[in-house]
Design a protein around this nucleic acid. Structure first.
Length: 112
DNA sequence: CGAGTGACCGCAA
DNA sequence: ATTGCGGCCACTC
């Protein structure tokens, strides 16, 4: 797939700023990058984009983990646990609402 | 230009 | 609280 460079780089910018121990959803990131419906595109970036970024901090809206993470959901879970994020037996982030990171304010989507 | 595809999302049953 | 479905964006063939 590989989205256009413009969008892709904004995604990088955002993902880089997710603090350790916090997570963001694909849709949330997409919105922050100016394209609220491009959640799937963000997924594409996550899969094929720069591997030297904290992609383990990007999860689904409901807290479930991505299947495409290197090492599978299990690997993803481990990566997150290793930085203090609790993952339950169903491979979902415990207490998403609290774990979700929002750069500025919960509703308005300003760029960092 | 049309059809298929994917680390998604929100709204019904 | 779980599923199922349709809709979305960008890209490839």
């Amino acid at each position: 797939m590989q989205p256009d460079r413009e969008f892709r780089e904004r995604v990088y910018e955002v993902v880089q700023h997710i603090p350790k121990g916090r997570v963001m959803s694909y849709g949330q990131i997409a919105a922050l990058c100016g394209n609220p419906r491009a959640a799937r595109i963000v997924g594409g970036v996550a899969h094929w984009g720069d591997p030297d970024l904290p992609w383990q901090r990007v999860v689904m809206r409901d807290g479930s983990l991505a299947p495409g993470y290197p090492g599978g959901t299990a690997g993803h879970a481990e990566a997150l646990r290793s930085e203090g994020v609790e993952i339950n037996d169903d491979f979902k982030v415990v207490d998403m609402a609290q774990r979700l990171w929002h750069p500025v304010h919960p509703d308005q989507n300003s760029l960092l």
